[in-house]
């Protein structure tokens, strides 16, 4: 294994992106809206493509606007379908985001004829390519750092409103705190985060970064603030572990398994998501064991 400056930037970008996703992810999870994160991360695709088609460049602003609008559209339309069609939340989201995702793929194919846009990049991200940049610090590092800062700042400023809107939206409304607007705001922030994250980890893996750190953190803390903190730690560890596995253990093991010795390295973004999953299952098993054999330890709150 050889560690270069490029590896450092890959880990830094992956970690910043994962942590940026974990923040809105925790609140989606608390709202029992994990599926909304999934839906938004898929539904932003046509928004991005339309942004490309309209502006004709890979200028980030039009694609950002398109994606956020598409994300909002998903939240609103699935809500309408849920009420009017009397179907459950998951089903109405499924209807909306699958259609939008398919539409997005078609649009990207069309857009690809006009601008330099690769469907594969959109789906799986291009972490390894994105960090190759002339500047001393790659643009994508600034970008994911900025969105992490924004999300942390918003979570800190609106902490109690987000907490109340997730726990008891009716009481929030009755006491004059507009839980509906808070949920819309969360949708917007999720869409924004997804757009920034898709460039590094791809639209499909964003869902792992949104949900898995939060789900793991729920096992570790009994306070919303604690859950947030742990989710950041899990996101960071997933990024580091994921890249290490991608460049060292992964290829060797897979190479041995398949008989090929020239696998080079695996997708870092993919391994980061896989690591997040591994961390989740480790803690799940650990918490079960603690419950079983050390119930006194469980009572302590972290």
């Amino acid at each position: 294994m050889i560690w270069t400056e490029l590896d450092t930037w890959i880990v830094v970008t992956g970690a910043l992106t994962a942590m940026a996703c974990a923040v809105p992810g925790v609140f989606l999870l608390l709202n029992k809206q994990s599926m909304l994160g999934d839906a938004i991360s898929h539904a932003v695709l046509p928004g991005l493509a339309i942004g490309f088609l309209v502006s004709g460049t890979r200028d980030p602003l039009p694609m950002l606007i398109g994606a956020v609008l598409a994300g909002l559209f998903t939240g609103v339309v699935s809500g309408v379908i849920e009420r009017r069609g009397r179907v459950e939340t998951g089903a109405s989201l499924g209807v909306v985001f699958c259609s939008l995702f398919a539409l997005g793929l078609i649009l990207i194919r069309i857009a690809a004829d006009h601008v330099d846009l690769d469907p594969g990049c959109v789906l799986y991200g291009a972490l390894e390519l994105a960090v190759i940049d002339s500047a001393p610090v790659p643009r994508i590092v600034w970008q994911s750092g900025a969105i992490l800062f924004l999300n942390l700042a918003l979570a800190a400023v609106f902490f109690k409103e987000l907490q109340l809107a997730a726990f008891d939206p009716r009481f929030a409304k009755a006491s004059g705190i507009p839980s509906g607007w808070i949920h819309q705001g969360l949708t917007i922030v999720t869409a924004l985060t997804t757009v920034v994250a898709f460039e590094s980890v791809g639209s499909i893996l964003v869902i792992a970064m949104l949900i898995v750190p939060g789900a793991t953190a729920m096992l570790l803390s009994r306070r919303v603030a604690g859950v947030l903190l742990w989710s950041l730690v899990v996101a960071l560890c997933s990024a580091v572990l994921g890249h290490l596995l991608a460049i060292s253990v992964g290829p060797a093991w897979l190479g041995w398994l398949t008989g090929h010795n020239d696998l080079g390295s695996l997708s870092s973004a993919g391994m980061m998501a896989a690591s997040a999953g591994g961390i989740f299952f480790t803690f799940l098993a650990a918490s079960r064991l603690v419950q079983r054999f050390l119930p006194s330890l469980q009572k302590r709150t972290l």
Partner: peptide, 10 residues
């Protein structure tokens, strides 16, 4: 994940 005090403070 909130305490009784957290809920009352709401």
């Amino acid at each position: 994940p909130v305490s009784a005090r957290d809920v009352v403070a709401m």
